[in-house]
Design a protein around this nucleic acid. Structure first.
Ligand code: MN
Ligand code: MN
Ligand code: MN
Ligand code: MN
Lengths: 221, 221
DNA sequence: TAAAAGATTTAAGCATACTTAAATATTAAT
DNA sequence: ATTAATATTTAAGTATGCTTAAATCTTTTA
């Protein structure tokens, strides 16, 4: 498996399962920074290898084999993130960037060593679940994006997902951290702004950021 | 720089500087497990990029630029080895194999993080010196291969270098470890055997192994 | 529903990194 | 000094992973 193939499968998996984005070659191409032609080409090759289903003009779909592979790469990615975050003084963005490289240079043995050393972690530092060695994702908490949270309700932050340095800086500056509790004061729907109170402070968050912050209702039951 | 290129330069450097082996394309090819034709091809391409000097039928020679690059890769390799050895329960062979992959997926930033975390180490767990960030190798101890050590003299083990699992098992079983002291009892030159005493025990070491054990004279001055 | 806009696919081509087989040069042996 | 053995290079070809430009299909809009 080349890094290109692994990134391709991983991206399809994330688009398919974790976000509700479409998985036509064009979307994958944009995410990976390659041309549409290259993505189509890759899709046909991987379908030969039974890693995904490709039908002209349709969205790409991972086969069970392709999904297993994608989950192995995601596992390695999140294990490295967890390890780097706990061991060194690195930011949420730095660990992601390094893991993006390391995930392709990690033997199965190495990932088991990390897994055991970290004492079988369930979540990475961004709040994303770590698949187990069989590619099974234990459980996904019932969450929604802050952008879609209800006014007046209290939530706990459980995921922060982005590749944008400014997003993480914003979070840092405003104490938007995993496990912190917030209250949604107001949704300015037309202007796509969310006003919340966090640790006593009131802040307004634009859609670009509130879409990367996942929350879960507190005492929802 | 692709992994292929990095491994190619690294191998030339090691053959040139650390061992007295020749650096014609054929030797490099054998070490990397590729065909002679592929090595020649690679040599011509890298010479275009001013990473090495290539003249038909001659040994390859790194340019200053090529040597700097090789040393950066070696630095990353040995930093990872040191880190893995100190952090996890991994053998001298395991750390080498993992570092062989990780070295190509390591940003300069990551290698500086490792370097600082490890408190600027000078040697890796095999006893090999770690180049600094400018590609400068601090100092190489005055050493020789056990195979060429003098009868009756006492030595300290300072390097163990091999890719052979059996070699490391042999070392483990016989307490042949870095910093341990030995006395060379006899060199059976014709049969290429070396008899040493180590921690009170007398053992005979065949050339295949004694050539991978580097020693330095004790109180040599 | 027909044209325009937008995506996707096909086609042609390039760079890297390899292969095997044939040609050529070097080195060792007689 | 030839010849034989060995090593190196050249040639031809393959797979991967990308590119741009042209052709084709799908979706939107009028
Ligand atoms: Mn990646
Ligand atoms: Mn993550
Ligand atoms: Mn390597
Ligand atoms: Mn080493």
């Amino acid at each position: 498996m080349s890094a290109s193939t692994e990134n391709f499968l991983k991206t399809i998996y994330c688009f398919q399962k974790l976000e509700a984005r479409d998985t036509k070659p064009g979307s994958i191409a944009k995410a990976l920074g390659i041309s549409n032609a290259a993505a189509t080409d890759m899709a046909r090759k991987l379908s030969e290898k039974d890693l995904l289903e490709y039908r002209k003009y349709q969205a790409l779909q991972l086969t069970p084999k392709g999904e297993r592979l994608a989950l192995q790469v995601i596992r390695k990615h999140r294990l490295w993130e967890t390890f780097l975050y706990r061991t060194f003084d690195m930011s949420l963005l730095e660990i992601h960037n390094e893991a993006e490289l390391l995930e392709h240079a990690t033997s199965d043995r190495m990932s088991e060593i990390l897994w055991n050393y970290l004492e079988k972690p369930s979540f990475d530092p961004h709040g994303d679940p770590i698949p187990n060695v069989y590619g099974f994702v234990d459980f996904e908490k019932d969450s929604k994006v802050l952008f879609k949270a209800e006014e007046g309700q209290e939530y706990r932050i459980i995921r922060l997902v982005s590749n944008d340095e400014e997003f993480y800086n914003f979070c840092c500056d405003n104490k938007i951290e995993i496990d912190n509790e917030i209250k949604v004061a107001k949704q300015y729907s037309k202007n796509q702004l969310t006003e919340i109170s966090i640790l006593g402070r009131q802040i307004v968050i634009p859609k670009e950021f509130s879409n990367n912050i996942y929350v879960t209702r507190i005492s929802d039951q």
